[in-house]
Write a protein that binds this DNA or RNA. Structure first.
Length: 315
DNA sequence: ATGGGGTCAGATTTCGTCAC
DNA sequence: GTGACGAAATCTGACCCCAT
């Protein structure tokens, strides 16, 4: 996943859920330009939390109201109010979704937010980059949501655990790009990078993350495995990140059946790095307290038989 | 005075069920 | 399969509370 927008969603982006009560109000039309963003900032419209929301939506591509609530609010209703406001300001967009499909992915149906035009510009002004505003194609939207769900349940689990902290990067930040001459080539595009650290003894755990929706055929997955292998053998990761060991790749898929299929593919590929496979149904069923401790990951390391390990078990 | 946080009620859709 | 119908779900405007 992660090809940006060859097929943007059409202009008519109706929400297919039960609509609001007193009629759906259209958002105000604004001219999104640098003075507009400046005036927002001068008036202090953006709170710290708003900024966090925009950064997170940018990293993950799309989040549902439910997911954003779990990350940043106590009350669903309050979150809706604030998100609606960010939508009105064109900092966020709302996207089309299919309730049945969200349920199949283990998600609660609800409005889905993506980064809006003003949000894009705000981020660009902040980082100095020149990312383009895109409407996300529908197929990546569900992938984004599924990925976000994993990040959210991890976040909740880590909040619950007192000794560990977690940071993460989305696809946008952990993408590996090489420049040969003036040609930019994407070498590797992980869905995410998760970093656990325990302040007590300064220990760290890194994981690359792949969220598999079961839509990719096994040949494509084999290519993905080879790309990780090539990145590992290239040693660039040592200088780029200063890691002494290459992070295992966590593969989260939809159900146990697909997980078994992927495990077979990984074993046959004889990858030089470690892989951990689990499925979202199992992970969600665990609950906060167990998510980090339960041995629900089938770990495949080069030259070793498969093992069942937890995220934070000692390597 | 302003604005965010929160509750509540209401409008409109989707879902589930029953009968045919 | 389809139509009817009530229940449930969803989201927003109105409103109040509180901090600054």
């Amino acid at each position: 996943m992660g090809l940006i927008s060859s097929h943007p969603i059409a202009e008519t982006r109706q929400i297919t859920t039960a609509p609001p009560g007193r009629g759906r109000k259209k958002r105000p039309v604004v001219t999104v330009n640098v003075p507009y963003i400046r005036s927002l900032l001068e008036r202090g419209v953006l709170t710290r939390r708003d900024e966090d929301v925009l950064l997170t939506v940018d990293e993950l591509g799309a989040l549902s109201v439910g997911q954003l609530t779990r990350l940043y609010w106590q009350s669903l209703s309050t979150a809706r109010h604030r998100l609606r406001k960010l939508y009105d300001l064109h900092l966020l967009d709302r996207s089309e979704y299919n309730p049945a499909r969200m349920i199949r992915l283990g998600l609660q149906p609800g409005v889905v937010y993506t980064l809006g035009k003003a949000g894009r510009l705000w981020l660009n002004m902040r980082t100095g980059k020149k990312e383009r505003y895109v409407l996300h194609p529908l197929n990546t939207l569900y992938h984004n949501l599924a990925l976000a769900e994993f990040i959210v349940i991890l976040t909740e689990a880590v909040r619950h655990a007192e000794d560990w902290q977690m940071n993460w990067q989305g696809e946008r930040s952990c993408r590996i790009v090489t420049t040969r001459g003036d040609r930019r080539r994407v070498l590797l595009e992980p869905d995410g990078l998760i970093i656990f650290n325990r302040p007590g003894d300064d220990s760290h755990r890194y994981f690359y993350l792949e969220r598999d929706l079961g839509t990719e055929n096994y040949a494509a997955f084999q290519r993905k495995i080879r790309r990780y292998g090539a990145f590992f053998l290239g040693k660039q990761w040592r200088t780029r990140y200063g890691w002494s060991r290459f992070p295992p790749v966590l593969v989260v898929t939809n159900n146990a059946g697909r997980a078994r299929g992927l495990i077979d593919v990984i074993q046959q590929a004889k990858s030089p790095i470690s892989w951990g496979v689990s499925d979202i149904e199992t992970l969600i069923s665990l609950g906060r307290a167990d998510l980090l401790r339960a041995n629900v990951w089938t770990v495949l390391s080069p030259g070793k038989p498969p093992r069942q390990l937890s995220l934070l078990s000692d390597p």
